[in-house]
């Protein structure tokens, strides 16, 4: 029983981290219509900056720099590349982001090389015990931070001018701009937010129980795409739901791999999110919480 509980808690905390990344996909998509295939690299970038900088400036300042670095990168990608696309179509933008991803990921991979960089997180490999269930401290922290982050997002989007303006711009850009809302500014804010969330997720994805910062992190960030699609393309709350479902699914499939192997084969935990995603796209193309207009079939 405690094994199951541990798997569930693990899955939920991992899912919350995924939802941070998924929320980044959703925010960028709603604010600029871009399917950001480079988001995984931005996650890696945030973690990389922390790993490289913590020996000199300390862990927490390094985290701040990581967040800033990821945010600025996002803003620049949007301002310099997306806004200057010769052909402003969603597919073209998606392919552009594949190009950006290749460049970013290749450069980061080259810098990291074959090593696994340590993150220098003060919580190290410690574990928190709840009765006979034990969880890595990093995961517990991740859950807490994620909850705080989403509370912050909720406040931003429902209680501040900037957030309401962003929602207006996402709903109907041309009309919002008639109210004096500068779309370039709301778009930049969206990309910056996604970058900050990515860096935070990057820190938790690379601290214990993960070995450290390695290029594969960008790929595991890819697992947030099913979470995003599942929740709905334009929905931040959907990202939370999607993240939890995907996190739980992977954790359970991986945790019970031995039992499932005869039917599903080894390593199904990595594939399960994508299977879920294909099914969702087929049955409910706008996701669980997405608005219908997001997908016109």
């Amino acid at each position: 029983m405690s094994y199951l509980l541990e798997q569930v808690l693990n899955g939920l905390s991992y899912g919350l981290v995924l939802s941070l990344i998924a929320a980044g996909f959703a925010i960028v998509f709603t604010s600029t219509g871009v399917l950001n295939f480079a988001h995984g690299s931005v996650v890696l970038l945030g973690a990389y900056l922390v790993a490289v900088l913590h020996p000199t400036i300390g862990f927490w300042p390094a985290v701040l720099v990581g967040m800033a670095g990821s945010a600025v990168t996002g803003v620049l990608i949007n301002a310099v590349l997306v806004r200057n696309l010769a052909d402003r179509k969603p597919d073209t933008a998606a392919i552009l982001m594949l190009g950006v991803d290749i460049v970013l990921l290749t450069e980061l991979t080259r810098r990291i090389g074959n090593q696994v960089l340590t993150l220098g997180a003060p919580w190290g490999a410690s574990v928190v015990r709840f009765g006979d269930v034990s969880l890595p401290t990093g995961r517990v922290l991740a859950a807490g931070v994620t909850v705080v982050a989403f509370a912050g997002l909720w406040y931003l989007f429902s209680r501040t001018d900037l957030g309401v303006g962003m929602r207006a711009a996402a709903a109907d850009g041309p009309t919002a701009s008639l109210m004096g809302i500068r779309l370039s500014r709301t778009a930049a804010t969206g990309w910056a937010l996604a970058g900050v969330l990515a860096a935070v997720a990057g820190v938790f994805l690379t601290s214990f129980p993960a070995p450290g910062v390695a290029p594969t992190v960008a790929l595991s960030a890819f697992a947030a795409i099913p979470a995003w699609v599942l929740g709905g393309f334009d929905s931040v709350p959907g990202a939370v739901v999607g993240g939890l479902v995907i996190g739980l699914t992977s954790a359970l499939v991986t945790g019970y791999e031995a039992e499932l192997e005869p039917f599903l084969g080894t390593g199904f935990g990595e594939v399960a999110p994508y299977v879920v995603m294909i099914v969702v796209l087929l049955v409910r193309p706008s996701g669980l919480l997405g608005s219908k207009e997001a997908v016109r079939v």
Binding site: V164, R167, A168, M179, I181
Partner: peptide
């Protein structure tokens, strides 16, 4: 803005 409340619509107007 269909998904925004009336008050939020006005808020966006007064941005």
């Amino acid at each position: 803005f269909r998904d925004l409340t009336v008050a939020e619509n006005l808020r966006a107007g007064g941005y």
